[in-house]
């Protein structure tokens, strides 16, 4: 099975950061925007909306790489790529916050949770949901949760605005 992950159609992304907000809420204790704001530590997003050039934006999260550098770099061996689903997951319980994964990630998709017990954080594809919160929340439907070959097919069929 091919890895399903989050793809962004740059031609549709308007940089509104709804995905970031939905991500942080999904990873909060209360899963409610107004209560999540009061949580301590505040929940953190794992997807980044970035500016590419004037009026061009995209959102990028963990790419669940075919050959993930973070897995090799982790000196606690707590990051694994699932053989079945292709998903790359951090076992938070074993993470010692050495930031070796951050050192190695080509997409800056891993961030630091600085708290009483610091941990590395990244996109976990929302294990409690069928479709990740960011994808569901995107108002322009710029985000897709699918495998690379389906994404390529979509491009071929010109379902994306741009080839």
């Amino acid at each position: 099975m091919e890895t399903k992950k989050i793809f962004c159609d740059i031609t549709k992304c308007v940089g509104c950061r709804a995905c970031e907000l939905a991500c942080a809420i999904e990873h909060s204790a209360t899963k409610d925007l107004f209560l999540a704001i009061l949580e301590s530590p505040r929940p953190k997003k794992r997807i980044n909306t970035q500016f590419i050039e004037k009026d061009v934006f995209h959102s990028v999260a963990c790419q669940h790489c075919d050959d993930p550098p973070c897995v090799e770099a982790c000196m606690a061996s707590c990051i694994h790529k699932d053989k079945e689903t292709g998903k790359v997951d951090i076992d938070s319980k074993r993470c010692v916050a050495c930031w070796m994964c951050i050192m190695a990630c080509p997409f800056a998709a891993i961030s630091r949770k600085a708290a009483a017990e610091s941990k590395a954080l990244k996109c976990d594809l929302c294990p409690e949901r069928e479709c990740p919160a960011c994808v569901d929340s995107c108002p322009t439907r710029a985000l897709y949760f699918e495998a690379r070959k389906d994404w390529a097919k979509r491009k071929e069929n010109k379902q994306l605005v741009n080839k």
Partner: peptide, 29 residues
């Protein structure tokens, strides 16, 4: 941030070897 690298991926395509680089910028012109 990584977003500023996207134009480079498009322009120096052959140097960015990981397939994930293409995944991130395939809809960018």
């Amino acid at each position: 941030d990584f977003g500023k690298v996207i134009p480079l991926i498009k322009r120096q395509r052959d140097s960015f070897l990981r397939p994930e680089y293409q995944d991130t910028c395939s809809t960018y012109t």
